[in-house]
């Protein structure tokens, strides 16, 4: 690779250094680092399966240059929960049958998590606006909405970091 450069930013709370090409996208960097929970769906910032959280806000990692993450805090699905301790959003999505093929779900989890951190009790309109960047082709979003409303009602993510 020509012109590779060092970047440093944190991923899921851990400070990291990366060697990147100038036009490497954050998605490709994350995936080659083994963080494959972030998906490649469209490559044009249109589907949301590549969603990650950067400094508390969701972004499309497929169109974000890795260098744009310099000095920032990146959160991926790998940082959100695990089998022993899933995030309430993950539990709700699973329990409500909102996971079909599952390809969009990491992005859905991250978008909802960022929303609830910013607005712990969103209105339905706010929910739809903040979730509008994550396409799902399987579910028709019904069960996803039910799961998100369940988490909002339980207040289990209110103000969560």
């Amino acid at each position: 690779m020509k012109n590779t450069r060092h970047l440093s930013f944190s991923v899921n709370g851990e400070a990291k250094e990366f060697l990147v090409a100038p036009d490497e996208k954050l998605l490709d960097l994350l995936r080659r680092e083994g963080l494959t929970g972030t998906k490649h769906g469209c490559g044009t910032g249109s589907c949301g399966s590549c969603t990650v959280i950067m400094d508390g806000k969701t972004v499309y990692s497929c169109i974000l240059y890795a260098f744009q993450a310099e000095g920032r805090a990146i959160e991926t699905i790998e940082g959100v929960g695990d089998f022993d301790n899933p995030h309430p959003l993950q539990t709700a999505l699973v329990e409500e049958g909102a996971v079909q093929c599952g390809f969009c779900i990491p992005g859905i989890v991250l978008s909802a998590k960022a929303l609830l951190a910013e607005i712990p009790q969103p209105t339905d309109a706010e929910l739809k606006v903040y979730m509008d960047g994550n396409l799902c082709r399987c579910t028709g979003y019904e069960k996803i909405e039910v799961a998100l409303h369940k988490v909002i009602a339980a207040g289990s993510c209110g103000g969560a970091k």
Binding site: L93, I105, V109
Partner: peptide, 19 residues
């Protein structure tokens, strides 16, 4: 309505798909 058996691993973003 038992829980879909692969759904938690998918929601956690575990390696699952071809890529």
């Amino acid at each position: 309505s038992v829980v879909k058996i692969d759904s938690m691993s998918l929601a956690l973003g575990k390696p699952s798909y071809v890529a």
